[in-house]
Design a protein around this nucleic acid. Structure first.
Lengths: 199, 199
DNA sequence: GTCTATAATCAGATAGAC
DNA sequence: GTCTATCTGATTATAGAC
C-alpha cells in the first residue's frame, strides 16, 4: 500500500527552483498552465524531476501554497507590528502578486476539497491575526478610529484592496481613483502621511 | 486560408445545451475541467458536436461569456430600475453563481488577451451603467445618501459583495455577519426594509 | 540527484459518412 | 445535424539505469 517511490528532500535546491518556476507560470498564465513539463522547462530542468520532488502535481501546488501562505503571514505580522500598521496593511493587501496568486489558488480550491480546506484555514488565520492586532491599534487612534468594529474594518480593507487589484489587472479603473482617495484619506486621518517604510 | 469547416447555427437547441453544460462544469470544477469531452458527456452528446458548434474551446468560452454577460446586464438594469434599487443591486451582487462564474472567466482572461479585453469591456460597462443610474437614485434619498460619491459607492458595493461571496464559497466567515449588518443598515436607512421583490 | 524509456490516458481538431 | 474514425500531441506517473 504505502508508496515505495523515492522522493527528493524538501531542502534540495532544485525543489525550490521548481516551486519558483511553478509560481511564475501560475502568475503569468494561470494554474491550468502549470504542468510538469512546463514547470521544468521554465526551470531549465527535465520534467521527470518534478515527479521526483512531488508525487503529484497537487502535491506541488500544496507545497507552493503553504510556502507562500507562511510568507504572507510573516509579512502581515510585520505590517501589523510596524509604526503605521494600517498603512502597512493596506500596502500589503494591495500587492498585485499576492492577490493574483491567491485567486489562482482559489481556482484550484474548486477542484480539490483538501486544497479548499487548507486555503480556508489560512484565510481565516490571516484575518484572525488581523483581529488580534486591530483593537489595540484602533484604540491608540482614539474615538475617530472606533466608528467601525475591527471585524468590519478587516473585511472592508480586504474587500476593497482585492477588488481594486483584480480590476486593475484586468484593465478596469472606473471609480478606482475616488475609492483609493477615500481609503487614503481615512488612513491619513488616523496615522498621518505615509512615511518611508523602514520596518 | 479562410476555414471551410462547417459550423452549426447559433440558434440550434443543442448548441445551448452544450453551453449550459459547460457552465455547470465551470461552476462545479473550474474552467480547466471544461474540455470538449466532458462538456459533451455532461450534455449527453458526442464530443465532436462541441467542435461542430464551436471551432475552438476558446470560442465556446467566449460565447458563454457573452451570453451570461448580457444576462447580467439585463438583470442589473432591472435592479437599477426597481423600486428599491440599492437593495436590488446588493442582492444581484451577492448572487453566488454570478460571482463564481465571473472569477472563472477572470482566470481564463489570464491566458487569452482577447478574452481579457472582452471581460474588461463588460466589467467597465456594468459599472458605467451603475454610475448612470446612481446619482439620480441617491438624489431621491436626500442628504444622507450623499456622504460618498456614486463612484465610491459602486466600487464599495462590488468589492464587499464579491469578497463576501468568495469567502463564503471557501468556507470563511470571520467578520461577515458584522459587515453584512453594516451594509444592510445603510440600505435600510436609505430605502427602508427590503420588501418582497416583485420587480 | 538526474536521466532515459515507457505506459496509459486524455486533449483539441478535422474529414467524411450517414 | 450527428456520428465514426482518425490524427497528433500533451499529460501524469512510474520503473529503472547511471
Amino acid at each position: 500500500m504505502a508508496s515505495e517511490r523515492r522522493l527528493g528532500s524538501p531542502e534540495a535546491k532544485n525543489r525550490q527552483v521548481l516551486l519558483d518556476a511553478a509560481e511564475q507560470l501560475m502568475l503569468a498564465e494561470g494554474y491550468a498552465a502549470v504542468t510538469a513539463r512546463r514547470v521544468a522547462a521554465q526551470a531549465g530542468l527535465k520534467y521527470q524531476l518534478v515527479h521526483y520532488y512531488f508525487r503529484t502535481m497537487d502535491d506541488l501546488f500544496l507545497a507552493l501554497f503553504r510556502q507562500r501562505a507562511e510568507e504572507g503571514r510573516e509579512r502581515q505580522a510585520l505590517a501589523l507590528a510596524s509604526s503605521q500598521p494600517l498603512w502597512a496593511l493596506w500596502e500589503f493587501s494591495t500587492d498585485p502578486a499576492g492577490t493574483r496568486i491567491t485567486m489562482e489558488f482559489m481556482g484550484l480550491a474548486n477542484r480539490n476539497e483538501a486544497f479548499k480546506a487548507e486555503i480556508a484555514r489560512y484565510a481565516e488565520l490571516l484575518r484572525a491575526e488581523q483581529l488580534e492586532a486591530l483593537p489595540g491599534i484602533l484604540q491608540r487612534y482614539g474615538a475617530a478610529a472606533q466608528a467601525y468594529p475591527p471585524e468590519v474594518l478587516a473585511v472592508l480593507l480586504t474587500s476593497v484592496s482585492r477588488v481594486l487589484v483584480m480590476e486593475q489587472m484586468l484593465g478596469v479603473s472606473l471609480g478606482h481613483a475616488q475609492t483609493r482617495q477615500l481609503v487614503e484619506r481615512y488612513l491619513r486621518e488616523l496615522e498621518g502621511d505615509r512615511r518611508a517604510t523602514g520596518d
